[in-house]
Design a protein around this nucleic acid. Structure first.
Lengths: 350, 350
DNA sequence: TTGAAAGCGCTAACAA
DNA sequence: TTGTTAGCGCTTTCAA
């Protein structure tokens, strides 16, 4: 069977998970310890030996078994990402950023989805803990408060992203929605709007509350009056955007600037305005929220929009989790700034 | 320190990964072997002993270490999902379905993203193989052919989903795009359209080729003539949908049915038609592709669209991979049927 | 019915 | 410079 007669007699058994370091050592004619040193390029070894071992390893397709390694180390080099709401448009850029961060450090990601089902969440958590993850990221679609996941082993680093735990000791990373709203309203004021309306989604969303706060705060800062009827909460849909526009323009004091709670609403608004023969941004300027390219660039005109920088949020989450795994203590709620992306719905050149 | 004086003296050392079975055994006052039997409810043991052990385990929060277990088993109970194009709208429902399938069987998922970067793909693959995954799913945004991933250890089950390997021995799961196109065109013919156009995306997409084939085949089957200028390839955008509509209606024989390559194009088409004062579906019926709800329901009127059932594709992929892990040999290209979802753009009741 | 011990694949401390 | 060995946490014979 053997094509290498110089190889010492062996059981010819290859590990159930593929060739093992024992196989490498045997074929290379060295001890296991030596093989280990050679492959991990540490310890003092003759270059010749080192080369021989690595050559054999390559030849037989040896690949160290991470699970066996992790049994020694205090790290499994894996983290769990638990989405407590289904994978969606908002969690996606966060995932992507997390993935980059961790992949760069050789940390693998267990991805789990527990769509608002506590039972499933429990199962996933059990599984992740069985895998001895080094850290956990919890994401959601909404930034509303949620009960903390758990119970978890003490000391397991956890970061909530775009999601907030009802637990003062937890670390939550959120977008500064209030600040985003201010950016939008200030921008409208800066380009000369004085009657600025806010058409937004359902009031039970925390995000709606925060953006509303930012809206009023920015109005005050700009020295603009609040107008009853300029604030309209409804649905997150284009249809609501169109409907709200009708309502706003039915009155005697139509707005000259509209800050929308998301891009779908904004798109509905610009459509309705166009169909009423009102020019955007000439007569009315419009700002959306989310900077969802599918919407912002397809709208006529393309929409100025607030970007929550979810990708940055994900990167920061990854960075912090890695720090925490490294032993740092981090807690509290951190809000990352939003950015305004200007397009033609608020400027002629855009 | 100890609040249980009856417990035998110990090193008071808890494993680096949390309490171990040794801890359980020591505290329960039994041997490790006994504890193992009790916790895995096998072997013959006195009920009393069994209860004592499980009680202790629960109390100290013992959780078996999967990595240590996997060292014995021939399975790691993990699979890798490698996205060779970034996580997106198309891969999402597939992920979700895969996740369900695997989670139900206690299999964890390593999620990796290698956005068209072969180097990164190699890294991820190395990592996954180090983790001793039991199987691999490869997804992509496009269904175009790609070189097979690898090199992989022989016998490692792989399934390509919404993605096709340039390797006859591989298993690929795809949507039946040709069939989907036929569904759409047949539907249009059935409701009385006789001049059916096809506005689609860039020709270098395999999907475009296939849908085009289905379009012509269905025309022939319905006994309808091909009309030069009724086939328009362009971009995957609303703007192209609008532009193509202008082109189609500039000629002398405007169509009375338009099958679009995706929902964005379709939305552009219905918008352009409405603005031209052409009623949909009264004068022209329109069908989209993808059944992307954001588009289909926001369009006016809501769009009839072909659904590729990506979720079903994901489920099937999971099922097959599990079969393959179980030892079954599966190969070849499988195309799963599309479905037509009828809405108002082709029917008055909708 | 329970305990002891070998070993999964690997690393690291210690000997030689 | 290299080999030996004791674990990492667990399962599984084989003895007792």
């Amino acid at each position: 069977m053997s094509d290498a007669p110089s190889v010492p007699p062996s059981t010819d058994r290859t590990g159930r998970h593929g060739p093992t370091i024992r196989d490498v050592a045997r074929i290379a004619g060295v001890s296991i310890g030596t093989a280990s040193k050679a492959l991990n390029s540490n310890g003092r070894l003759r270059q010749e030996t080192r080369d021989k071992v690595t050559a054999v390893a390559r030849e037989i397709g040896y690949r160290p078994n991470d699970m066996a390694q992790s049994l020694h180390r205090t790290r499994s080099m894996t983290v769990g990402v638990l989405s407590t709401d289904s994978f969606g448009r908002f969690t996606l850029p966060i995932f992507q950023a997390l993935e980059e961060q961790f992949a760069d450090r050789g940390i693998a990601i267990f991805m789990c989805n527990a769509t608002d089902d506590p039972e499933r969440e429990r199962q996933h958590l059990d599984q992740l803990l069985g895998k001895r993850i080094d850290g956990l990221v919890v994401t959601a679609r909404r930034a509303d408060k949620r009960p903390p996941v758990g119970p978890l082993p003490p000391g397991l680093p956890v970061v909530y992203v775009y999601s907030q735990a009802d637990d003062g000791d937890a670390l939550s990373l959120l977008a500064d929605e209030d600040g985003g709203a201010r950016l939008a309203v200030k921008h409208l004021a800066d380009i000369g709007c004085s009657r600025i309306a806010h058409v937004t989604g359902p009031e039970h969303f925390e995000a709606v509350q925060q953006r509303k706060r930012g809206y009023y705060a920015a109005l005050a800062e700009a020295g603009l009056a609040e107008h009853p009827g300029y604030y309209r909460a409804g649905l997150w849909s284009e249809a609501w955007g169109r409907e709200a526009t009708e309502l706003l323009f039915a009155g005697d004091a139509p707005p000259d600037g509209i800050f929308c709670g998301n891009d779908q609403i904004a798109r509905g608004v610009v459509d309705a305005l166009r169909e009423r023969g009102i020019s955007v941004p000439g007569q009315v300027a419009v700002v959306g929220f989310d900077n969802w390219e599918v919407m912002t660039t397809a709208a006529r005109p393309p929409l100025t929009s607030v970007d929550m920088n979810l990708s940055a949020l994900g990167h920061e989450a990854g960075r912090l989790l890695i720090d925490m795994i490294g032993g740092e203590k981090v807690r509290g709620i951190r809000r990352l700034p939003c950015t305004l992306v200007v397009r033609q719905s608020t400027s002629r050149q855009g």
